[in-house]
């Protein structure tokens, strides 16, 4: 039962990975790609890690630390990249007006 659940979560995570990473190739804005990447890299990876946690509960402390650092760092990194990239594009827009 737990085996099915853990494999299900890992497979769900991999589906999230593919769904969220494929838009990277297209021609969209950085911010739009960030939205789909946060689905893939934060939520998908968290699902995979929870699946692993159910599989090997003896190493729960390391995996829990991995889940927490993943959630915090990926979100903060998303904010930092959004801040840096959007400011830059606004600068480019004002330059065009000049």
């Amino acid at each position: 039962m737990i085996d099915i659940l853990s494999y299900g979560l890992i497979i769900l995570g991999i589906i999230f990975w593919f769904w969220g990473t494929l838009p990277l190739i297209g021609n969209r804005s950085v911010l739009f790609k960030l939205h789909s990447l946060s689905v893939a890299d934060t939520l998908g990876s968290m699902a995979i890690l929870v699946g692993l946690l159910l599989k090997v509960p003896s190493e729960w402390s390391l995996l829990l630390l991995a889940i927490i650092t993943l959630a915090i760092w990926n979100t903060v990194l998303g904010y930092v990249i959004a801040y840096c990239a959007s400011d830059n594009s606004q600068l480019a827009n004002t330059n065009k007006h000049d």
């Binding site: 911010l31 789909s36 934060t42 998303g78 959004a82 959007s86």
Partner: peptide
């Protein structure tokens, strides 16, 4: 607050 808004995939704080 910024963390929570950015964590949900539909919204990202840019500034």
């Amino acid at each position: 607050d910024i963390f929570l808004i950015t964590f949900t995939p539909k919204t990202i704080v840019t500034k």
